[in-house]
Design a protein around this nucleic acid. Structure first.
Lengths: 358, 358
DNA sequence: GATCAGAATGTAAGCGCTTACATAGCATTT
DNA sequence: AAATGCTATGTAAGCGCTTACATTCTGATC
């Protein structure tokens, strides 16, 4: 961890004292001119600002942080940046926070609970004053650690009714119940499910549970060979659809996917297999990525406004930092986007019942 | 900018002095135990670490930064996080830097030169010790500002031969020359081009120039109605392809796209228009996104290892911080991925009409 | 046994800024 | 004219840490 180099420091020999001298005031006035302009007479303020500009000076954040006990830093913990969903959440959060002078530190867990805990520790050590965390299934004690420091936080992306944490997000279980409802209403009774890894991922777990619960209400259950768990990629979607359709026994008439990439993969494989969508098979996604409306047939999926999640999380944290005791934010709604990849099953139920009774 | 709240500060009453007292040593030893463990006798080090753990203490970064004149902060300026290309670059950069204890600040310009300049100013004010910047077409003086502070920087994503800046990236012009070469070799002489906004974007400009130059060598020029500039979306790709193919006069036999999203849009529209790819029309993309190999036909495109760009940028900056005077990094290679969306033009229009009537 | 190099630890002076408190200046009020 | 309040500014004490330098101790060398 090289400690060498860096003596140079271009101009930055200037300190508040130099600016004060040049402007003919005290350092206190210099500080106030920058941090509480309204407390300084306009003409003096001008003089200070001009002197600062002349010397290319700006308050050194370490000194400021030390003296004021404010770092103006916030952190956000996400699984990965390599995913539109989180990238846009972070983007919006950052935009909002930086408008209030707060800089955002980003920590990626790579879907690993240990890394997540580490990142949080690091951000805390860096002095973040607020934290947004994706999901609530983390190492036990993680939220306690945060609270112990008196740092306000908010869970994002998921909103589980009954969760002890303030959260900005939608109800993943409800969203998948909605999808199930749609398919059940169309008349489907045989389902497949392709989903991403569920370990340490409460969002995925909630989705699966939502789906199972809604199906169970109609007395429908997922048959194990029709459930596939793996990487959230197009390739895994393809592979899984093939495996599901080739499984012995009756084929499902609807396959629910954990996200759009999986669904797009399933769609591609269905075409390759010569299976008609939606006549023979309905397929649903989740996220509503740009590609979803361009597939053939266009994909029925759920839309979530990720940027809005970021914005609301930022607003909530900002309110906390302002000392207000904001009410926990209300859940967001996810919206079912009906397109052509879902339709009523054409095959007579009789047939599949007959098959099943064999 | 609410200055309220935050008196609480959970435990963190602990300071180095408290840890020192508990461990029965001086603050200097506490500091050394954390920053230069090899200078402290093992058993004392243990005692200090235990005391710190007991009090939940870790060095306060502001104090450390102030005393050591090191912030262990680096910045990266990108157009947007809403783009895999930059997201993975940043992800890799961050992973590498954090392994050396450097925290990354991310600034997004939203493709706007003013915002870019602002973000850089902000990061500099925050005390970043190194900076990675996407592209080199920025407000005049931006790089001078950075240099003036004595902050090492590196330009990423593009590598223009002859650029005065150290850069980690590939030669965008060469990459498009490569694409042009491929299509020319197949026998194409009528080209179309669909590209993203070129303002303040040297990468796009270089690509267009590379293409035009390569075509010019064969005496081929792009006809204005066959050139479309707009948002890098699937939708704009579709719309543009239609407009190009509907333009009066001979149709191009090959359409080059500025990225994969545009190319995928073009591919979709070609299918909708009943234009055979690649028999009647060849289409190329850029980036090699996951979807590119799943389209029908799979997309010929250029692959760039964005994560590698991030890694190398990090290594270069780390070397600078270590006081070494690293040589400017060599350019990366982009690779042509040949798939089925390109092929030889079937010369006579007549033939393809005949085919269509089958 | 005295001397000395070298390693381990302590002492204390800041790093650059903010802010509680003190002070000065001035317009009102009594 | 003295007392009062108010505002704009200055004074100076840290914020929590690092590190140059001083000190102490150890074992090796003469």
């Amino acid at each position: 961890m090289g400690r060498g180099g860096r003596e140079r420091k271009g101009q930055p020999g200037a300190r508040a004292l130099d600016v004060a001298a040049l402007a003919g005031v005290s350092t206190a006035t210099v500080s106030r001119a920058f941090n509480a302009p309204e407390k300084v007479a306009p003409e003096i303020r001008e003089k200070v600002l001009k002197a600062a500009a002349e010397l290319g000076w700006m308050p050194h954040p370490a000194g400021a942080a030390l003296a004021s006990r404010r770092t103006w830093l916030a952190g956000v913990l996400i699984p990965t940046l390599d995913n539109d969903v989180f990238a846009s959440q972070v983007g919006a959060l950052q935009t909002r926070l930086s408008a209030d002078g707060v800089t955002v530190l980003i920590g990626c867990s790579n879907y690993d609970a240990d890394q997540a805990a580490n990142q949080v520790r690091t951000m805390l050590a860096r002095g973040v004053e607020a934290l947004a965390v994706v999901g609530e299934s983390h190492r036990p004690g993680l939220f306690e650690t945060i609270s112990a420091r008196g740092v306000p936080y908010v869970v994002t992306y998921s909103h589980r009714p009954g969760s002890p944490h303030p959260s900005v997000g939608f109800d993943n279980a409800a969203a998948f119940r909605r999808i199930a409802r749609h398919l059940l209403d169309l008349g489907h009774r045989d389902f497949g499910l392709i989903h991403q890894p569920s370990i340490d991922n409460d969002r995925v777990v909630a989705r699966i549970e939502g789906l199972r619960a809604a199906l169970a209400e109609e007395g429908v259950a997922l048959r194990p060979p029709h459930v596939r768990e793996g990487p959230a990629s197009i390739a895994f979607g393809r592979e899984s659809l093939r495996s599901i359709m080739e499984a012995p026994g009756p084929r499902p008439t609807a396959v629910v996917c954990g996200n759009d990439a999986l669904a797009i993969g399933a769609l591609i494989e269905a075409r390759a297999l010569g299976i008609g969508v939606p006549e023979e098979l309905s397929i649903t996604g989740f996220d509503d990525v740009a590609m979803a409306e361009q597939t053939d047939p266009p994909l029925t999926t759920m839309r979530v406004d990720n940027a809005e999640i970021g914005r609301r999380a930022a607003d909530y944290l900002l309110a906390c930092l302002a000392g207000r005791q904001p009410p926990p934010p209300p859940p967001l709604e996810s919206r079912l986007i009906l397109r052509a990849s879902t339709g009523a099953p054409t095959a007579p139920r009789v047939l599949s019942d007959a098959q099943r009774s064999l």
